[in-house]
Design a protein around this nucleic acid. Structure first.
Length: 459
RNA sequence: GGCGGCGUUGCCAAGUGGUUAAGGCGAGGGUCUGCAAAACCCUUAUGCAGCGGUUCGAAUCCGCUCGCCGCCUCCA
């Protein structure tokens, strides 16, 4: 299979280096609720992981929580609670959101605050090797000591510097030197270190965690495109300078960013739509279908209409996967060439996870299933394949809102209505159907009887 | 200023040199149905921002122009 590598700016043939494929995905800084940008990134890498596993690789997936950081501290001070409380709250929220989106859990979720000894060890090593220096209790990485700094973002030190804002009053040798360790200000959480009381800088935790949990060279490191610079660039600089092992990461994968009304969603701009709000109105599968309908490296614009269209499309897949395929005596044996659809799916996904093209194969398979059913031709294998491939993309195929608990009452109404229909009391029967529809329950009559489903109004 | 991305049918979106430009949503017509719904069938881009160029042949390669966006500062 081929994967696009940000480092080389092109697709490369992918093979893991060992028996276990190592994959590190940058996690959240838990200081606020997750928004659709997070949904995008974690659904994309969930799809990546599921497909890698489907292709037979054993994947070890590690994802961090940066649970100590300026924004968390600020939030904690605003709320007048310990910063750990803020972090814990939003970590729990993160898991709740991701579970609902059917994102598989990583093997390990290291937290920055639990990796401080390793972080200090790495920083000390960088200082010892001349790659870092202490200044008034802060420790900075010396970018000039890294010959190929800028290789991920494809920028030279000079060109980066031209656009960079220089922080004032900071004791840095070079404007692009970045903090590995920050001295504690009064009232801030701190850990004891060789440079006094302080806390880790932003980038160092990922280096420490990936070294500890996955080794010196990772197969895949993922995150949003907004992390390419400075975060991932700095991770490379730290990690390779510390270990002397190149490359730190073999394949850098970056998902495109979510746009809202043409502009990037940004926490700092305050434009954000949370995952929770979106899940209140659209099914997890629809959100996932929407995201996977376009290539993961491109930008995505969420919209009301787009999500509604995705919900409809998802309903089509659900319907085909679960339709009564009939095992009656008058049914012909199945004739769908499931293998051909599977092959199309695999070919698409092998080409840098072209989920949009893979989905086209699923929709074609769904049509083939429906067509067979109408001809009373068996579809067991077709449906099995649709479910199998859909689950590789992370779809649950679950009906929405099953938890509403209205089932027995709907059943009762359907039964009453069946009696009315038998007596050709169409007006009353139609009235029941229409009023249930208004309540979000759609009835579908067929020769086999009446079925129903929740039809969530999109407003 | 530097780096990068994008511009394909009403909307979303695949397709990166060669028979009829995927798929979804929407729209129109038909089949089925008591009527609906769902499903199925048919129709819906001689054209891929514009202008040049390379080629037997380009949406696909090259150049230029226009427009939109991201990163270079916290961000998935």
């Amino acid at each position: 299979m081929r994967i696009y590598n940000t480092l080389s700016s092109r697709e490369e043939e992918f093979q893991p280096q060992g028996d276990v494929l190592t994959m590190y995905v940058c996690g959240v800084t838990p200081y606020a609720e997750c928004h659709l940008g997070h949904a995008m990134s974690y659904i994309v890498f969930d799809m990546v992981r599921r497909y890698l596993e489907y292709r037979g690789y054993k994947v070890k997936h590690v994802q961090n929580f940066t649970d100590i950081d300026d924004k968390i501290i600020k939030r904690a001070q605003e709320l007048n609670v310990p910063s750990t409380e803020v972090a814990e709250k939003f970590i729990a929220q993160y898991f709740a959101d991701m579970d609902e989106l059917n994102v598989q859990r990583a093997e390990v979720y290291p937290r920055a605050t639990e990796e401080v000894p390793k972080i200090i060890e790495v920083i000390q090593g960088l200082v010892d090797r001349g790659h870092a220096y202490e200044a008034k209790g802060d420790v900075y990485f010396r970018v000039s000591s890294d010959a190929d700094y800028g290789k991920l973002s494809h920028q030279s030190l000079d060109s980066l510097q031209a656009g960079a804002r220089v922080e004032v009053g900071v004791e840095k040798e070079h404007p692009l030197d970045f903090a590995l360790w920050k001295a504690a200000k009064p009232g801030e959480p701190w850990w004891q270190s060789p440079w006094g009381r302080g806390r880790p800088g932003w980038h160092i935790e990922c280096t420490a965690m990936s070294l500890r949990h996955l080794g010196e060279t990772l197969d895949i490191h993922g995150g949003g495109q907004d992390l390419i610079f400075p975060h991932h660039e700095n991770e490379i600089a730290q990690s390779e300078s510390f270990t002397g092992t190149v490359p730190f990461v073999r394949f850098w994968m970056h998902n495109g960013l979510v746009q809202l009304e043409g502009e990037k969603m940004s926490k700092s701009l305050g434009i954000l739509v949370t995952i929770r709000e979106t899940l209140a109105r659209f099914s997890p599968d629809a959100i996932r279908l929407f995201i996977l309908s376009s290539h993961y490296r491109g930008p995505v614009s969420f919209s009301e209409d787009g999500l509604t269209a995705a919900e409809k499309g998802m309903e089509r897949l659900r319907q085909a996967a679960k339709a009564d395929g009939g095992a009656g005596a008058d049914w012909q044996p199945g004739a769908i060439d499931a293998g051909a659809f599977r092959q199309r799916f695999v070919d698409a996904m092998d080409a840098d996870f072209n989920s949009a093209q893979a989905l086209a194969a699923l929709f074609d398979l769904a049509r083939e299933i429906n067509r067979s059913i109408s001809q009373r031709v068996g579809v067991e294998e077709g449906q099995r394949t649709l479910l199998e491939l859909g689950r590789v993309l992370g779809f649950t195929f679950e009906d929405r809102d099953v938890r509403l608990g209205a089932d027995p009452f709907v059943g009762l109404l359907i039964s009453v209505r069946a009696d009315l229909r038998a007596k050709k009391e169409w007006q009353l029967a139609d009235s029941i159907r229409r009023r249930l529809k208004d309540l979000g329950v759609a009835l579908e009559d067929s020769p086999q009887g009446t079925s129903w489903k929740y039809d969530r109004p999109s407003g």
